[in-house]
Simulated assay, not measured.
Amino acid sequence: MTDSSAGTRSRGKRERLAAAAATVLHEQGVEKTTLADIARVAEVPVGNVYYYFKTKNELVEAAIETHTRSLSDLIEALDRLPEPAERLKALIAGWVEQRDTAVRFGCPTGTLATELDKRGDGLDATVADLMRTLIDWAEAQFADMGRTDARESAVALIAAYQGISVLTNTLRDPELMAAEGRRLERWIDSMA
């Protein structure tokens, strides 16, 4: 076995643990999640978790990094669309496609941000950066559409999604997300 193959396997386990952390933290919340829960989902012996992550907070940070990479990949895919209005509507369509997940667990980033805000360990600032990235991207789309209120529009869009995620989850009604998605698409069309 070479050092590079050992490094690849280590990265594989670490990435599996981070992805599992993102999933389990979303489904169970930070406080209820144990390292054993994450290890089980990642299919890694619980004793191995400590090789990659010394604390639960390190796993939470890894989960946030996983969300950050996912957002980066999403933005990269959306940026391939030719028009900013199309990009924004594709973002909305992606949210609507995830409505069944929102029914069960809410928005992955929003619920994590809310929970981390109560802990006071600084991880809330890390997840806030992730939310800021999405707002900044949306602002750039509205600016490309010639909107002088690009920042306000971006905040309104993300706030609408976060709000409908809470309502969809609380009322267990996926149609709420679908209806809000249609409304947001009409709003984007009215600006184009």
Rank of each mutant, 00 (worst) to 15 (best):
A62N: 05
R172G: 09
I188T: 00
S72I: 04
E83I: 01
R119T: 13
V41T: 11
T126R: 15
Q98F: 10
V24T: 14
E115N: 12
S70Q: 05
T114S: 15
K56Y: 10
C107G: 03
A150M: 11
E58V: 12
K13W: 00
E115I: 10
A90H: 05
Y50D: 04
V155L: 13
T168V: 01
V127A: 06
D79V: 00
Q98H: 14
A140L: 04
T148E: 14
L130T: 11
R151G: 03
H26L: 06
A102I: 04
T101N: 11
E115C: 10
P82Y: 09
A18Q: 06
P45C: 08
T66C: 03
R104F: 04
D124H: 14
T2H: 10
Y161H: 11
L184V: 04
S4T: 14
A143M: 02
R119I: 15
Y51W: 10
W137Q: 04
D73S: 02
I38W: 00
A42S: 06
T68I: 02
E76M: 06
I164W: 00
R104L: 15
E115W: 11
L167N: 05
M131T: 13
D144S: 13
P45W: 06
S165M: 03
G106M: 03
A143P: 01
Q141P: 00
E139H: 11
L81M: 12
A179S: 14
A62I: 07
E139G: 03
L74W: 10
T34S: 15
A113K: 14
A159P: 06
E180F: 04
L35G: 08
A140W: 00
T2D: 14
L112C: 12
R172E: 15
A63I: 01
V103Q: 06
S10E: 08
Y161S: 06
L167C: 08
D37K: 08
T170F: 13
R183C: 02
I64E: 05
L157T: 00
A39D: 05
P174G: 04
S5I: 15
E83V: 06
D149W: 08
D124N: 15
L71C: 04
V155P: 02
L78C: 05
L134A: 03
R87E: 02
I75V: 14
T111N: 12
L176N: 10
A90W: 04
A22V: 05
G110L: 11
L35C: 05
A128Y: 09
A22H: 02
R40Q: 13
T111Q: 12
T34I: 09
S5Q: 13
A93V: 01
